[in-house]
Design a protein around this nucleic acid. Structure first.
Length: 399
RNA sequence: GGUGGGAUAGUCAAGUGGCCAACGACGGCAGACUGUAAAUCUGCUCCCUAUGGGUUCAGAGGUUCGACUCCUCUUCCCACCA
């Protein structure tokens, strides 16, 4: 029983520090029914969760199955500083209002995956604000600048002459202090958080709370491009709140290599099942596209319904395999004859008339499925389906 | 506080008086090929009903027929010294 739990917990992890501690905690749970706390921090800087976040959330959900109580930490204090992780520039500071709004949408999305009854939402502002200047200084004395600069992103930025704000140095300390205050047993985060996660361990020792958190790191999920990490600002993400059609389409657009990553980190299939599928693809008995469709179905179903997922699949085939016009196309209307380039901009499928001209020249623009090449074309009264490239559609009614 | 270096399109990065809407790379978009995969090849990549016009090279002034390029001030960054 314990092995099953441990295996499930370890699945897909990048690194675990102090695995023994996790084993002990699990044992205490099975033998004495004792629960333990698992901390995970979330920055309320982006209001929408994407699949990258759900990698962590899914792992937390697994802990909930095996006696873990989740400390869902909202970094509403630290958001005012901005975590330097993975950023090449100092982050913008958010207003109170933004943060409050983000938190609400954040948690409702998170509870699509987490068991609310086993989750405690905590805000680090509560205790960090009370820390005071003295407390802050004491905290800061635990760390040397040299040690700080060991951090990969700091040293990179330093080397490339990118500014580093002193406040950014404080960030890992505060995150570590959160673990002291919460007396967390385990903290989980992405591999890019390693420094901060370890800081929690170190500070727990310094502040003598008689335990040091185990650390479990999940790999960073790559975005749709397969190279950079999934993030909203890079625009390579699949959002939890994406429409079923979009979600399905986005999953299907990832590369084959990336698909296996997604299987490992996002699918609920067992590793054995995945290995089987993989060898099936390798020996040619399974078509990779079919496999990817199944993955897309699974993921879409998780955030919508099975029915919607299948509809998305049908829609996808309709549009792409048979190049028909999608069912739901945004509709626009205008008064009087209109120039095609202007029409495309008005329908929001082109960013400027210059861009529209270029695309027309390149044969990327279609009207009612017919490719057009005439830049000066005027649309007279009637209804048209405008299309740019393979995926941008709009209906226009000229009155 | 002192000295020196720097700021160029989404990013990196050329350009040091006219040939600059600005080389190149990456990214992005589109076309061909496909499985809306990858790889590859090709074109495009500031705006404007356009063989032309407009606005750009941190910001504000100035020199000049002409400035991204020279001068002055301002803002921000970096390095060294204190």
């Amino acid at each position: 029983m314990l092995d099953v739990a441990l295996n499930e917990i370890k699945r897909g992890t990048a690194e675990i520090i102090d695995e023994e501690r996790i084993v002990k905690l699990l044992k205490a749970y099975y033998d004495e029914g004792k629960t333990y706390t698992v901390k995970a921090g979330f920055d309320p800087t982006a209001p929408d969760l994407h699949l990258g976040h759900t990698v962590l959330l899914q792992k937390l959900a697994i802990f909930q199955k095996y006696g873990g109580r989740i400390q869902f930490l909202i970094g509403n204090f630290t958001a005012a500083i901005g975590d330097p992780t993975g950023k090449s520039a100092t982050r913008k500071v958010l207003t109170e209002e933004d943060i409050a709004k983000n938190i609400t949408s954040y948690t409702t999305q998170a509870f699509k995956i987490l068991d609310e009854s086993k989750t405690e939402i905590v805000y680090n502002k509560e205790w960090l604000e009370k820390l005071g200047a003295l407390g802050m200084l004491q905290l800061a004395s635990n760390l040397t600048v040299a040690r700080m600069l060991e951090r990969d992103d700091f040293s990179k930025r330093y080397a490339s002459q990118t500014p580093i704000a002193v406040s950014e140095f404080i960030y890992p300390l505060l995150q570590g202090y959160d673990s002291v205050h919460l007396q967390s047993d385990i903290e989980i985060g992405g591999t890019d958080q390693k420094f901060n996660l370890l800081m929690g361990r170190q500070l727990q020792k310094v502040y003598e709370i008689k335990k040091q958190q185990a650390v479990l790191m999940m790999p960073i999920l790559e975005g749709l491009d397969g190279v950079q990490k999934m993030s909203k600002s890079l625009g390579n993400y699949i959002g939890v709140t994406d429409e079923a059609n979009d979600m399905f389409g986005k999953v299907l657009s990832i590369s084959d290599a990336l698909m296996w990553r997604y299987f490992e980190l996002l699918s609920t299939k067992t590793l054995e099942e995945i290995a089987e599928i993989k060898s099936g693809v390798e020996n040619g008995s399974l078509h990779p596209k079919k496999v990817k469709e199944d993955l897309a179905l699974e993921i879409t179903t998780r955030f919508h319904t099975e029915e919607l997922a299948h509809e998305a699949k049908a829609e996808f085939e309709k549009v792409h395999a048979r190049s028909q016009i999608p069912t739901d196309v945004e509709e626009f209307s205008c008064e009087g004859e209109i120039w095609i380039a202007k029409a495309l901009v008005d329908c929001k499928i082109e960013s400027s008339t210059s861009q529209a001209r270029r695309d027309i020249k390149q044969g990327a623009v279609r009207i009612n499925q017919e490719k057009i090449s005439e830049i000066d074309l005027q649309l007279s009264v009637g209804e048209y389906v405008l299309q740019v490239g393979k995926r941008k559609f709009a209906k226009l009614k000229v009155n």
